[in-house]
Computed example of a mutant assay.
Amino acid sequence: MDTNLRFSMLNRDLPGAKERTAKDPEIAREIKYYEENFSKVETVDDLLNDYRLYNFMMKTMGLEDMAYAKGMVRKVLVEGTDDSGALANTLKDKRFKELAEAFPFNKDGTIKGKFDWESEGLDPRMVLWSNTPGEEVDDVDRLAEYFTLKMPRDVIFTTQILADPALYEVITVAFDVPEEIINGPKSERIDWFDENIDIEALKKPSELKDTIAKYRDNLEIREADRTKGIVEQYIQVSFEEGEGEQNEGVRLALNFQRTGGNITSAYEILGSPALYQVVRTVLGMSESMVGTDIDNQAAVINEKFDIKKFQDPEEVDKFVKKFVILYDAQNGIGTAPSVQLFASNPGVGIPENVLTAVNALKFGG
């Protein structure tokens, strides 16, 4: 079945196609393993040393081809994306930044969400009292205990909450404080807390209990949403790979359909082999350009197409449709596809009806 036809058939019921993928026994087993075991990960090395979890992560992020580079992956994960100089932010391949954001770790290699009980700003008494000697107390339980002990006892001002990592953690989660506030200037955080949180009311036993309940509930919701998102992406990538086993063009088209709207620069295209192949095919870029100066290639892409158009879903749709038509044309003729597709006369060897279909897909602008 040709690329254009198969791609069109799948798009008539993409949810159904992905549901069938999720029911595949092998894929279902890997999903179950991830759901049951990722919560046990405490450090980046726990993840890297678990073959199944590591490969699940890499496949989910479309990085199977880089699974061998564990040292580089480790550096990406522990450095994160907060620092502009972090490795993930300096690489042209956007997949690594997406990896660091999807699987966040602290700089010491511990997974984010594991609370650092040696942080500055914590009350040593409450750190001691919230712990049970000889037992490993769950972070959530310990934070709840710390909050319950500390709030009514010592807190008077908003600045005290902002200065105490444990209090701040509980309240930002319980009250769903927006990310832009959490990561914003101190003055904006103070203003938000003063407007939305009544410290005196929060000290009452009923309010303390209610805040802890909201904290626990919101943590569970966030973790469930995160896991669901990772699993859905794993299914999507598995679905695309499965189609690629029959027709690589379909896989490329599905991948571009999913990710094309996120493209913001030509360098992101050049950093992704899958995106690059689609764009190079549609724009008629010569194979001789592959491996040449990256700035020159970026300039050619920008000259041929306005990247901003990818922000419009209709433009992405037109681009993908043009790709599947050209992909079928270049792979359905006898001589080398690259010669026929990228010849000085692009019409050589491509049927007139194909050229007509391609030319009918006009991009906006």
Score class of each variant (00 low, 15 high):
R6M: 13
P15K: 09
R20A: 10
E26M: 04
I27E: 05
R29K: 11
N37F: 01
V41K: 03
D45L: 04
L47H: 00
N49M: 02
D50A: 01
Y54S: 00
F56C: 00
M61Y: 04
A69P: 04
G71L: 09
M72G: 10
R74S: 03
V78A: 04
E79G: 02
D82R: 15
G85H: 03
A88Y: 09
T90G: 11
D93A: 07
F103A: 00
P104D: 12
N106D: 00
K107T: 08
D108L: 04
G113F: 04
W117I: 04
G121D: 11
L122P: 03
P124E: 05
R125E: 14
V127I: 02
W129I: 09
T132I: 15
V140K: 08
D141W: 00
A144Y: 00
F147Y: 11
V155N: 03
D164W: 05
L167M: 05
V177A: 03
P178T: 11
E180H: 09
I190V: 15
D198A: 11
K209I: 15
D210V: 01
R216T: 10
L219Q: 03
R222L: 08
R226Q: 09
K228M: 03
Y234C: 13
I235N: 01
V237L: 06
G244T: 14
Q246T: 15
G249I: 11
R251A: 15
L252N: 01
G260Q: 06
N262Q: 12
T264Y: 06
A266K: 02
Y276T: 15
Q277F: 06
V279C: 03
E287W: 09
S288H: 07
M289P: 08
G291C: 04
T292Y: 10
D293S: 04
I294Y: 11
Q297V: 06
Q297P: 11
A299Q: 13
K308P: 02
Q311N: 14
P313L: 06
E315Q: 08
L326C: 11
A329E: 13
A336L: 04
P337A: 15
Q340L: 15
V348Q: 07
P351A: 12
N353D: 14
V354N: 06
G364L: 05
